[in-house]
Design a protein around this nucleic acid. Sequence first.
DNA 1: CTGTATCCTGATGGATACTG
DNA 2: CAGTATCCATCAGGATACAG
Lengths: 131, 131
Amino acid sequence: MAKTHYSRFDCQPGCSVEAAVSLISGKWKCVVLWYLLEEGTLRFNELRRRINTITPRMLTHQLRELEADGLIHREVHAQVPPKVEYSLTARGRELTPILMALKAWGDAHIDLFGSKGTAGKPFTTASGEQK
Amino acid sequence: MAKTHYSRFDCQPGCSVEAAVSLISGKWKCVVLWYLLEEGTLRFNELRRRINTITPRMLTHQLRELEADGLIHREVHAQVPPKVEYSLTARGRELTPILMALKAWGDAHIDLFGSKGTAGKPFTTASGEQK
DNA sequence: CTGTATCCTGATGGATACTG
DNA sequence: CAGTATCCATCAGGATACAG
């Protein structure tokens, strides 16, 4: 059951914080979570096209970890051609305040990162997302 | 100034989120931030004793990264023996809501991590911390 | 007291090509 | 369409010893 790849937490103050951080600290995880939060359900190649610089290997890998950590749901439709849909679990959706807080902080201090405007998308609180 | 070790953010949705995450995703960073948030100012060995399984090399490393990212302040007192004090910057203190949100989520879903109770310290909102 | 210097291992992330 | 298979570079993190 979802043993996290991140090996150990020493259960000091900040333990559960580190545990939570470790679940979203993969290279593409935030982006994936963000898209799923915004768009609800996406197929493998839909995600791939949206991220576009990600390799299939990495996308698979990140998706599998997110799934193992109980943050996303993977639904395979038995048909030809294959159809696999990804969506957030309830647990994953509960990350929303964290992602928002992170984005708020990141946007406020974006100067630290060498002027990379984030440009568009202020995150529309995902249309009909609050199940 | 403060070029982050994490090489690149593709500035897609989730970009600033990833940027923010990368600043706190070091192995001991959350713990360090947490202690500084709780206790205000700590010396090198005070942090070391509190974390206790951390090696001096790692502590130095994490502290330097946090400093480079503008989250903590390092104050050297020119005296013998040396005295170096670490504290949060305003920017670092602004991480509080994030850390709290992460802890809340982590505590709520702690079962995912293989039953590690977090035990004590529910984080007392740091005694006199709100400068 | 507050660190550095070396050396080392495993995990992370990526390029490229191939498959049911 | 939705992935696997290989191979490879880099880096985060740690053990141990030493230093100003």
